[in-house]
Design a protein around this nucleic acid. Sequence first.
RNA 1: GGGGGUGUAGCUCAGUGGUUAGAGCGCCGGCCUGUCACGCCGGAGGUCGCGGGUUCAAGUCCCGUCAUCCUCGCCA
Length: 604
Amino acid sequence: MSFSQRTRLCGDLRAEHAGQEVVLNGWAHKIRDLGGLTFVDLRDRSGIVQMVIDPAKLDPKEIRSECCLAVRGKVALRSEETRNAKMSTGDIEIVVDAFDILGPAKPLPFPVSDEDQMRSVNEELRVKYRYLDLRRPSMHRKLALRSAAVTKMRRYLDERGFYEIETPIFTKSTPEGARDYLVPYRLEPGKFYALPQSPQQYKQILMVAGMERYYQIARCFRDEAQRADRQPEFTQLDMEMSFVTQEDVLQLIEGLGVTVTNELIAEFGMDLEPIEPFFRLTYDESMARYGCDKPDLRFGLEIFEITDHVRESGFGVFKNAVEAGSRIRGLRYPGGSILSRKDVSGLEDFCKEYGAKGMASFYVAKSADDGEGVISLPNGMFVRGGCSKFLSESELLSILSEAKSEPGDLLCFIADEYAAGNNVLYRLRNEIGSRCGLRDPRKLKFGFVLDFPLVEWNPEGGRWDSVHHPFTAPKAEDLQYLETDPGKVRADCYDVVCNGAEWASGSIRINRPDVQARIFHLLGIDEATQQARFGHILEAFQYGAPPHGGIAPGIDRYIMFLLGEDNIREVMAFPKVGSGYDPFMDAPSPIDPMQWAELGLRLS
RNA sequence: GGGGGUGUAGCUCAGUGGUUAGAGCGCCGGCCUGUCACGCCGGAGGUCGCGGGUUCAAGUCCCGUCAUCCUCGCCA
């Protein structure tokens, strides 16, 4: 089959092309039939151009929305009054001499050419008709950005001596972490491959194999509940390096992040400030100041602590909590003094959703007559309401000082055990940040969170679990506590966070069998289990394993940051819906009875 | 696994227990030579997610169920 092949792209045409004969290929974007004259906007990947058809010469009736066209015509300058300044091709139009419908189109399930209306179209429908949804220029731009991002990452790593190496998709289940997706093995019913949750073990083996610098745009599979930012399959830029320290890995990823991000911001004309060098926080600092290990540093609002100031307080809630071992910490809500009692009560309910027992608070008034029951303090400040009347003058002064409070604030307090309180304060801080509009949408605040603990106590299991994974190296100076005080051992383990979300996670790995053995002992993984699960990698490590480490940033999430998208579906070509269902392919779907038999499977 | 929201025309949504369930856009037909959200006239189009129940009467109330979106748990 032949067709009239294009000589130009729609979006490239300008006044300078006036008079030229062109052939264009594309889709009918919008059609305006005026009777004696028909306009059709033709769209290809490059943009949109208006065509004019004279029905006296050509019948335009067969042209329907989103049909695929080949068009022959002449570029004509539009008259002054008919130019469209809103279109980059608006100075010209194509006077059509002939057209072919290369692919006719049925009526559409949703208004493809109307970006405004598309914003509210049902998500499942968009996924089901993804090939139509993706025709939209806004969706094209997302995938173009993603393509450019991956290209830049590849180039950055290639220039630094990395090999791109593929690792298997059919691999072995390691029953730690997330649930595996499994693939039955036909030759021996009852045996299964697992799809990789990440290429973790392969990339370490590549270091044992002397590859020294590896990366891969790696698909990862995890069978867990979905979220707005999670899909059952997602993509990581997986990396590993030999003979490196933690600092080497950090500098590599920071260099990559800053370079690629700032190039993309410039090339795509994104409404974002160039990103700065990554901030650095230790895990302990991050927890103390922001209540979490992925702080949003687009705004300040740090957690303050007043435990020592209210130890003997007349306010029973605080005093009793401290006696019970809780800590009293809080956040300032800038401008929160205008909140009604009902608003504050709503804020307290918010905290309770995250497990808080309650939330104490008081207003920092602007003057002595700013509301009822104002207490004047000797430093010239005023407080009122909430628990202020139960606190002594010196307690109030200490609290205002710790909170770095300003007139007009609402001060919020959470009394709880450290970890539980952190969770509440983390959520509350983000909530206040949102309510006060403190998240600048033009900022991307990338940074490192360092020195994660090696293990954490699992109360249900009654054992120590790896915070990262069992191959994570303990810090050399903390090795001495491995048996005596495991919770105190920090790891050479690091995250990169951005705007309150985790971007990348990585660590220096254990390369010495004796240390690995101590870790397995700590984690309660006995010899037999070690052999069954990790025998292959443990043996590999007995043949001269180099010191090595790596990191793996999420590609999908990166594009979400750049675009300010809240949903991962928006940055993937073919996402699944929340249940893991693909409404286009109708997957998963039943298999033929023959296939059951062949695999030696049946439902219980 | 838990919580919340949504489900009515192709799409987005209205719809007080009571007549033949509506609107905008889209679609189909007609008119229209400068539109770019074209305009005007006419028309077709409904398993009110599904199943049960209450009621003289259910899109509307109740119970169950399914799907979807968000969320808590979960995600080494």
